[in-house]
Amino acid sequence: MKALRVVSAMMRASVALALQYRLEFVVEGALAVLWMAVALIPLMVVFGNRGAVAGWTYPEMLVVLGWFVALKGVLEGTLSPSLMQVVEHVRKGTLDFVLLKPADAQLLVSLSKIEPWRVVDLAGAAAIFVYAFQHIGHAPSIAQLSLAAGLLVAAVLVLYSIAILVVSIAFVAVRVDNLLYLFQSVFDVARWPNSVFRGLLAVVFTYVLPLALMTTYPALALLGKLNARTAVAALLGSFLFASVARLIWLSSIRRYTSASS
């Protein structure tokens, strides 16, 4: 399959590039571990003082954090660096080179740069899950696992779509390079389950900026606490979101090409 070949070639180039910087490679791997600890420590302190917060016990909260660490790895390891390059392309006017290549532009730009050491995040997330379920005392069932996997796909899709939307804005208003950075920091909110928030914020993080979809629902699925209706709605909603993002991306690409020629 051509798309697969393109992706694997791009990944190899990224890995080779990353390996060029010896010090960076070692340090970045260690950094990923450090940041995971930074995410865990406040949680440990909170639950050192309380048995449950907003209806979540410590191991349950760890499951949410596990999803957060994994998705943050995906976001900062693949999506952000790649899309930052698009913004750079737009500013320098070199995006044309990308658009000239005979492959889907969205695919090309969204995986063009990968930070391989972010695999550490996924490993860390797995470790957190194992630890959390040891505390809970029983492993999730196959049904729960597969539902969680489905929701993971949905979560990545939504995350990816938001990133693509942010970049589409960069086509129109070039000076918003840091918008992606802003989103990255808003994403930090997803480390808590959405019941931590109340009132307006809870609504925003569930429906407007669907952070609940990314960490809370998959965590609930693993814990066997997600009802079927919410699961289906989440899956459908995420596909809808991705389609809209794709349409907006295509239209802004069209606008870009017609404006620059």
Partner: peptide
């Protein structure tokens, strides 16, 4: 973000 969890 930290305030949110502590407030909860």
């Amino acid at each position: 973000v930290m305030l949110a969890i502590w407030a909860a």
